[in-house]
């Protein structure tokens, strides 16, 4: 018997309390058959990286609506790489200006999803990325 269960960490870094989007995405991913670990709000990049390691996730999904993405996201990516998880897919959602999104992608974030993104688009992106490896 073999499963190839995809495990996803959904985390809210920083002091941002907007957790609706993160919860919507967490539920949508569960309903799509993923195992979703939800960490809740007020996570430091260190906490997120530690959770990603212990949970051995395939995907780390960050949700940021506070504007602090330019400091928080690169830090998470850096920590993941430093602990040997270079292969983890890093996604970002929330309120992210386009120019920031471009810069973050250069810094190792694989995709950025803004308000109004449909769950099916996100699910399809993860499936494709996981199958493409």
């Amino acid at each position: 018997m073999r499963d190839d269960q995809i495990r996803v960490l959904i985390a809210k870094p920083g002091l941002d309390g907007h957790d609706r989007g993160a919860k919507v995405i967490a539920r949508a991913l569960r309903d799509a058959g993923f195992e979703v670990i939800y960490t809740g709000i007020r996570q430091t990049p260190q906490m997120i990286a530690a959770a990603a390691l212990q949970e051995d996730v395939d995907v780390v999904g960050l949700s940021i609506l506070s504007g602090a993405h330019m400091t928080l996201c690169p830090k998470v990516v850096e920590l993941l790489h430093a602990q040997g998880q270079e292969d983890v897919l890093v996604l970002l959602g929330g309120i992210i200006p386009d120019e920031d999104a471009a810069e973050l992608k250069a810094a190792g974030v694989h995709a950025v999803f803004g308000p109004g993104t449909s769950s099916s688009e996100i699910i399809a992106f993860i499936r494709t990325a996981m199958a493409g490896g």
Binding site: R27, R30, V36, Y38, G40, T44, Q46, A51, Q54
Partner: peptide, 28 residues
Amino acid sequence: SPFSGGALLGDRVRMTGHSGDAGVFIRS
């Protein structure tokens, strides 16, 4: 979930405060 085969693992939300401590390992 018996319907999707997925799961929402939320216990960790109540288990923060150990990060940075290599003496605690939490797995959902």
